[in-house]
Simulated assay, not measured.
Amino acid sequence: MPAAFELSKVSVVRPGKLLLDDVSWTVEEGDRWVVLGPNGAGKTTLLQIVGAAMHPTTGEAHILGEQLGRTALAELRTRIGHTSTKVADRIPPGESVRDTVLSAAHAVTGRWNEEYDPEDVKRAEQTMGEWGVSGLARRTFGTLSEGERKRVLIARALMTDPELLLLDEPGAGLDLGAREDLLASLDVLSESEDAPVLVMVSHHVEEIPAGFTHVLLMRAGRVVAQGPIESTLTAENLSMTFGQRIQLDREGGRYAARRAAYGRRADRSHDTSDTTGGNA
């Protein structure tokens, strides 16, 4: 079975700045990846390459069997679902939730004169139901809470039944309850046999759904570590990624991280176990 996508020695250079530096990354069908790193690590740029929104300066990117630079990007993008603040910003505040989801069938934001088949309407209603936003159908996008917006954006991204779903910081701006509700839904999605390949970008290990299988850690445009989450997401790797000593804990498939204690505080907590790699 071919990989969902494969990046080989990909770099992205902009005037005066190296955004990605020699990144190689292969994601297989059925994988669920989280990409972690501090601000400026290159996570969003990486997602733009994978989402066929940007060409690499050097290296090769094969996405869903197509090589960037040798394929029609508009057609390739229809096979990829993407949620981000940039997508949210393009949606007119007065657009109804129903039309926000439905218009994904034509890859537009803001309905105009497009015509939609009954199957499009049925699919929109199905995805809204699955993500718990059917009751918001007549509300306008601009009146939604941040948690409601996140769910509507994911329903929109899934509207076209994509082969690849990219989630750019879906937990950003959510309160604790809304975040936990969203993560529970993402966990259910990750365990579905019909789910697309999932790639989620985050700053926080607390936002990783329990069903995710792999992790990619980035710093300053380079890969620090990548692989199965249970062996790769360690205190040592997190410490290298964020540039400070990190303590990592795991319970019930969920993670929590904090800066490791120093000096006498560290001595008093010496007997605290760390099941995912100890203090780095």
Score class of each variant (00 low, 15 high):
residue 119 E to H: 00
residue 119 E to R: 03
residue 119 E to K: 00
residue 120 D to E: 13
residue 121 V to L: 15
residue 122 K to E: 15
residue 122 K to S: 13
residue 123 R to S: 07
residue 123 R to T: 10
residue 123 R to G: 03
residue 125 E to P: 01
residue 126 Q to L: 15
residue 127 T to W: 08
residue 129 G to C: 06
residue 129 G to T: 07
residue 129 G to V: 08
residue 130 E to D: 14
residue 130 E to N: 07
residue 132 G to H: 14
residue 133 V to S: 12
residue 134 S to Q: 10
residue 135 G to S: 09
residue 136 L to Q: 04
residue 136 L to G: 06
residue 137 A to Y: 04
residue 137 A to S: 14
residue 137 A to R: 11
residue 138 R to N: 13
residue 138 R to Q: 14
residue 139 R to T: 06
residue 139 R to A: 13
residue 140 T to M: 00
residue 141 F to I: 00
residue 142 G to D: 00
residue 142 G to T: 00
residue 142 G to S: 05
residue 142 G to H: 00
residue 143 T to Q: 05
residue 143 T to L: 00
residue 143 T to R: 03
residue 143 T to H: 06
residue 144 L to K: 02
residue 145 S to P: 07
residue 146 E to V: 05
residue 146 E to T: 12
residue 146 E to A: 14
residue 147 G to T: 04
residue 147 G to V: 04
residue 147 G to R: 03
residue 149 R to N: 05
residue 149 R to G: 04
residue 151 R to C: 11
residue 152 V to N: 05
residue 152 V to C: 02
residue 152 V to R: 02
residue 152 V to A: 03
residue 154 I to K: 05
residue 154 I to S: 03
residue 155 A to I: 07
residue 156 R to P: 13
residue 157 A to V: 14
residue 157 A to R: 09
residue 159 M to D: 12
residue 159 M to N: 03
residue 159 M to Y: 09
residue 160 T to G: 07
residue 163 E to R: 15
residue 163 E to Q: 15
residue 163 E to T: 07
residue 163 E to M: 13
residue 163 E to N: 12
residue 163 E to W: 07
residue 164 L to T: 08
residue 165 L to H: 00
residue 167 L to A: 10
residue 168 D to N: 12
residue 168 D to T: 02
residue 168 D to A: 06
residue 169 E to N: 08
residue 170 P to E: 12
residue 172 A to D: 13
residue 174 L to E: 12
residue 174 L to Y: 03
residue 174 L to I: 07
residue 175 D to N: 09
residue 176 L to C: 03
residue 176 L to R: 12
residue 177 G to E: 14
residue 177 G to S: 12
residue 178 A to E: 13
residue 178 A to C: 02
residue 179 R to Q: 15
residue 179 R to T: 08
residue 180 E to C: 08
residue 181 D to C: 11
residue 182 L to V: 08
residue 183 L to M: 15
residue 183 L to N: 09
residue 186 L to T: 01
residue 186 L to R: 09
residue 187 D to I: 04
residue 187 D to W: 07
